[in-house]
């Protein structure tokens, strides 16, 4: 009996070695099934003596375990082969392009505005806005520019009526803010916004452009504070090693007035064509708020003082991104704009 079982095992293993696919299933039925060879062999055990039965039983169990293990391993091997075949069939060219979910580009001017806003928010400034269609009063008169003042020539104006115009700068928001907040101080605001000048469009002029205005009013505000805040700002925006220089200038709504230059960001101050070989680049106008402006806004210039500054966003974007034609900001050529989807800060 024992020899019979071992012979069965041997035969089964030989058969298993050659079985594949459906044949594997058939093998399992043939040897391990309820009516399979091993079951039949065990059934005949009833004829054995009581002494022989446990011994042969042990052998039979060993044979079953061996065959089951052999089957499991063979089956796993076969399954593995099948899976490999399937995957080979399903193989793709991983060098083909991915289906991108592209992120759109931030407009370069928006990018600059956001950076400037964030810098000044860090200094404790709030962001104010005002209308683009403005009254003559706020755009000029409240800023110490009475009608027929020659300085109005500095800014050629689009008019909608005698009193209504397209604002020529963001400064009217200074006048509006003073009027709204009086008599409270401190005022610390910046004002981004679109402004309009009656200039023919060319590479350096645009009838519409963007300014960011700043206004600080409070007790004991000094021109040295203006210089301090502008220096920090210049370092944040143009780089840690930036230096600034103030030069006397004129704006009707500030006194003293100044232009602020930074070290040329291309040549570092050695002189190049961008800075006209001066080593400096003009980036903003600023000054101490003219006492008349404070008075018209309802403040006593003996009690509070203030400073203001204003910069052209296009100019800064042109410097930082090396854009040479201001019209490109409004042309919206996707070949240009899409480059701002990936540009770092």
């Amino acid at each position: 009996m024992r020899e019979q079982l071992l012979a069965l095992q041997e035969q089964a293993l030989v058969d298993l070695a050659e079985a594949e696919g459906n044949a594997l299933d058939a093998w399992r039925v043939q040897y391990l099934g309820k009516k399979g060879a091993l079951s039949l062999a065990l059934r005949s055990m009833s004829k054995l003596s009581a002494e022989e039965r446990p011994i042969v039983g042990q052998v039979a169990n060993a044979v079953r375990e061996t065959l089951e293990a052999a089957f499991a391993s063979k089956f796993a091997e076969w399954e593995g082969k099948q899976a490999a075949k399937q995957e080979e069939k399903e193989t793709i060219d991983i060098t083909l392009p991915g289906r991108t979910r592209s992120v759109g580009a931030e407009h370069p001017l928006q990018k600059i505005i956001r950076r400037i806003e964030d810098i000044f928010i860090g200094f404790g400034f709030t962001v104010e806005e005002g209308p683009e269609v403005e009254w003559d009063y706020y755009n000029f008169e409240a800023l110490n520019l009475p009608k027929d003042h020659p300085a109005r020539d500095m800014q050629d104006t689009f008019y909608l009526s005698e009193e209504l115009l397209m604002r020529t700068h963001t400064s009217p928001v200074q006048a509006r803010t003073l009027e709204k907040r009086r008599p409270e101080w401190p005022i610390r605001i910046i004002v981004p916004g679109r402004v309009y000048r009656r200039d023919d469009d060319d590479a350096t002029h645009s009838h519409a452009f963007t300014q960011v205005e700043g206004l600080v009013v409070g007790k004991g505000v000094r021109m040295s504070d203006l210089k301090g805040i502008l220096l920090t700002f210049a370092k944040e925006l143009f780089g840690e090693n930036q230096e600034i220089r103030l030069r006397p200038s004129f704006f009707p709504f500030t006194e003293p007035s100044a232009e602020m230059d930074i070290r040329c960001i291309y040549c570092g101050g050695d002189g190049c064509s961008t800075c006209k070989h001066t080593g400096w680049i003009e980036v903003l106008g600023c000054g101490m708020v003219h006492p008349r402006v404070l008075e018209m806004g309802g403040y006593d210039p003996e009690e509070v003082t203030g400073f203001a500054f204003g910069m052209g966003v296009e100019r800064i974007a042109m410097l930082l991104y090396k854009i040479e034609d201001i019209r490109q900001f409004y042309q919206n050529d996707l070949r240009l704009l899409k480059q701002f989807a990936s540009l770092p800060e």
């Binding site: 400034f125 505000v221 504070d225 805040i229």
Partner: peptide, 15 residues
């Protein structure tokens, strides 16, 4: 003109 820091009360910045 020196560079100095604004003095006085703190203000809360933001949007």
């Amino acid at each position: 003109i020196p560079s100095t820091n604004l003095e006085g009360v703190l203000s809360h910045g933001g949007l």
